[in-house]
Amino acid sequence: MNQHNVSALPPVVDQQTWQTALDDLRTREKAATRELDAIAAQRRRLPMVELPDYTLIGPDGPTRLVDVFDGRSQLIVYNHMWSDGAEWQCGGCTSLTSQWTRLGILDNYDARFVIVTNGPIEEALAYKAKVGNEMDWYSSSESSFGADVGAPPGAGFAVNVFLRDGDTVYRTWHTTGRGTEQLSYTFALVDILPWGRQEQWQDSPEGWPKSPTYSKWLDSPDVARLYGPNPDSQ
């Protein structure tokens, strides 16, 4: 457990002063909520682009992208960074995907969530088990799917959303970088803490604990140790 100087504390005030400061912050929080609602409304009005009939590789072999929907109309794909043959894959991707464990809620929204990586399916499934992921994984190693949706081999990660109309699949939304933070509960939890993320780039009061960016994130071995099938052996 990290120990910090006791000077890294907010000022102590009376109840009314605290409530006034909280009310002032709440005004901004509510404005941000309304802005997020407006952004979501704009997202629902985005146009879409028709996709080719891609074939991915699943646990049971080649699978058409339209069949990855498993009968649902909507599909969220996390494109996981991948380095063929590596013992540990991207720590950020591994840490982020470890949060998504109860995806059955999407059934009520006619939607499904899967991981797609450019790596060989055998390696992908072994890694899925190693780090304790529970969602379904697919490989785009034998198609241009990853490159075409902003996650080419040897490059970055992405989130893509698709809509199915019969046997035709459309791409409706995409994000990468810090845009994926909205899908993470860990940042939301840490951001309400008095010290926040404690990363060097953040605007914090003088004396607040600071650490190099990413240094407090779980790395891939940490995820396997905490959530993998044999945590004691990691």
Rank of each mutant, 00 (worst) to 15 (best):
E87P: 02
T175S: 11
K30V: 12
D53I: 05
R171Q: 13
V12Y: 10
L226G: 14
F113Q: 13
R178N: 13
D222E: 05
A151M: 02
L226E: 10
E50S: 11
T33V: 07
D110S: 06
W88D: 14
Q202L: 05
M135F: 02
Y170Q: 08
S211K: 01
L193K: 06
C93K: 07
F162E: 03
W100A: 00
R26V: 14
G71W: 00
L163S: 03
Q42L: 12
Y214K: 09
Q42R: 06
Y54F: 02
L218C: 04
A147M: 00
Q200H: 13
R64G: 06
N118G: 02
E123F: 07
L189D: 15
Y138L: 04
A8Q: 07
D165W: 06
H80A: 06
T63R: 08
C93G: 08
V131D: 01
D53M: 04
T168I: 09
Q3H: 08
D232R: 03
T20M: 03
T20K: 03
T180Y: 11
S143A: 05
M1W: 10
W88P: 09
W88M: 10
S141Q: 08
T27L: 14
A38T: 06
D110W: 08
N133W: 03
Y138G: 13
L9F: 15
P229K: 11
Y227E: 03
D165G: 12
L25E: 04
D70P: 05
G91D: 07
T180D: 02
E35V: 11
D70W: 04
A129C: 09
P11D: 13
M48A: 13
W195N: 15
L106F: 01
S233Y: 02
E29Q: 12
S7V: 13
A32T: 13
L125G: 04
